[in-house]
Every structure is written in C-alpha cells, then in structure tokens.
Computed example of a mutant assay.
Amino acid sequence: MMPQLVTVGVKRPDRRRIRIWVPVLPAVLVLSPLVVLAVLGAVVACRIYRLSVVRALGTGWRIVCALPGTRFDVEYSRTAVLVAIR
C-alpha cells in the first residue's frame, strides 16, 4: 500500500514545536511532471548500465510501498526534525 500521510515535526531551541501534515497523493499529483522526468531518468540510467527496466521500476515501487510505518529523527545541536510516514 502506498503511503498516505507524511508528518514532519520540528523542535526548535525555544521549545516551540512545529508539526506539518503532508498528504502524499495530492503532493504526488502536483509534482507529477517531476515524477515523469524521474522515471524517464531511471529508464535512461537502466539502459546505460544494462539493467532490466521493469525489474528496477518494480523494485522502486516495492520500496515506496514498504515506507508506511517508517520513522526517523534527526537531531543537530538543539534543533530536531522528526519525520513519520503513515
């Protein structure tokens, strides 16, 4: 299943927390011209390195479908960025 929601939280030094919810499907629809260019770039790269295009795109899709439930936190100094994919 494709991810549905990405939650981005930022903890700032002044202890205020900013939380942003990004729905994935509308974001992909808005960025679809860039997605098409990325797929075309992947096809060209597969041809250059003599890889199976279908297998590479299938593997990429399986990675995207495995993203729900992923969470990662990045902390630098007193600022932290928390990202959760649902």
Rank of each mutant, 00 (worst) to 15 (best):
V54C: 00
R15E: 15
A84W: 12
S77T: 06
V30A: 14
W61H: 04
R47V: 09
Q4A: 03
E75A: 13
V8L: 13
R17M: 13
P26S: 09
I48M: 07
R19I: 15
R16G: 02
V36T: 12
M2A: 05
V6L: 06
V24G: 03
C65N: 08
C65G: 05
S52W: 01
Y76T: 12
V8M: 13
M2N: 10
G60D: 01
M1R: 07
V10A: 13
L82H: 15
L51Q: 12
I20A: 11
Y49E: 11
P23R: 05
C65M: 09
V83L: 09
V22C: 07
V28T: 12
R86S: 14
P68Y: 00
S77R: 14
R15N: 15
A56N: 06
S32R: 14
V83A: 08
L40Q: 07
G9A: 15
G41M: 04
I85S: 00
R50A: 07
A45W: 08
V83N: 06
A80Y: 10
A42K: 06
R15S: 14
V36Y: 11
A42G: 11
A27G: 12
L67G: 00
R86W: 09
G60E: 02
Q4I: 03
A42V: 07
D14Y: 06
L57M: 03
L57D: 01
V39P: 01
L37W: 11
V74E: 12
A66P: 00
R19C: 11
R50N: 02
R55W: 09
C65W: 00
I48N: 05
I85C: 00
V6W: 02
Y76A: 14
V30M: 12
G60A: 10
G69A: 00
T7C: 03
G69Y: 00
L67H: 00
L25F: 13
C46I: 02
L29G: 05
C65E: 13
I20T: 13
V81A: 12
T70H: 03
V64F: 08
V64Y: 03
S77G: 14
F72K: 02
V35Q: 08
V43D: 03
P3M: 05
E75C: 08
M1L: 09
V64L: 12
R78G: 10
V24I: 12
A66V: 03
D14W: 02
V43M: 02
R86F: 04
A27H: 09
Y49G: 06
P3D: 05
I20N: 03
Y49L: 06
A42S: 12
G58W: 03
V44K: 06
R47Q: 13
A66Y: 04
S52F: 04
L40N: 07
R16F: 10
L67M: 07
T70K: 04
M2K: 08
T79H: 06
V24W: 06
L31E: 13
S77E: 15
L51K: 11
R86C: 07
V44L: 09
I63D: 00
R19L: 15
R19K: 15
M2S: 05
P68G: 01
Y49T: 10
R86A: 13
V64A: 09
L5N: 13
R12W: 13
T79A: 08
L51T: 05
V39W: 04
